[in-house]
């Protein structure tokens, strides 16, 4: 029944509000990102109201980092495929249901575009 509800909603509303950022949006490689884009990604990652990555991760020059998750360094080595890194941020619980990491994309904490920028920034580390 809920499926029908959702379908009806989408049918009715899609014309008014196209959904922003979905799981399968194309990811950006670090090489395609401008310095301004990297700075934006960094801002989103550090912003307490956005990524707030420092709450749990050590990142480069970030102040007062937490240590709940692993340090975010050498990301290209750890995630040779940027889509895997993107998927991890989008919904870490898909691979590990018991993760403490919030599903940033799935639960709409960040938009798809914001996650792309964060991925690009992390890939530069």
């Amino acid at each position: 029944m809920r499926l029908i509800t959702s379908a009806a909603f989408v049918a009715g509303i899609v014309a008014f509000a196209p959904p922003s950022g979905s799981a399968d949006a194309p990811s950006l490689l670090a090489g395609e990102v401008t310095p301004a884009g990297l700075a934006q990604g960094r801002d989103i990652a550090f912003d307490r109201g956005k990524g707030n990555c420092l709450a749990c991760h050590v990142i480069a020059d970030g102040q007062l980092p937490g240590n709940i998750g692993p340090p975010l360094m050498a990301m290209k080595l750890r995630f040779p495929d940027p889509d895997r890194l993107r998927a991890q941020i989008w919904d870490a619980s898909a691979r590990n249901p018991e993760t403490i990491m919030p599903p940033f994309g799935k639960h709409r904490i960040l938009t798809g575009e914001e996650i792309d920028l964060v991925v690009a920034y992390l890939y530069s580390l």
Binding site: C56, P65, G66, N67, I68, S93, P103
Partner: peptide, 24 residues
């Protein structure tokens, strides 16, 4: 919640870890 966290996540499994500059 939107962050998908339980009390036990922070104050059980990760008790003692740092969240930003603070111990859980």
């Amino acid at each position: 919640g939107r962050l998908d966290m339980a009390c036990v996540d922070c104050h059980g499994r990760y008790a003692g870890a740092f969240i930003r500059g603070d111990h859980l």
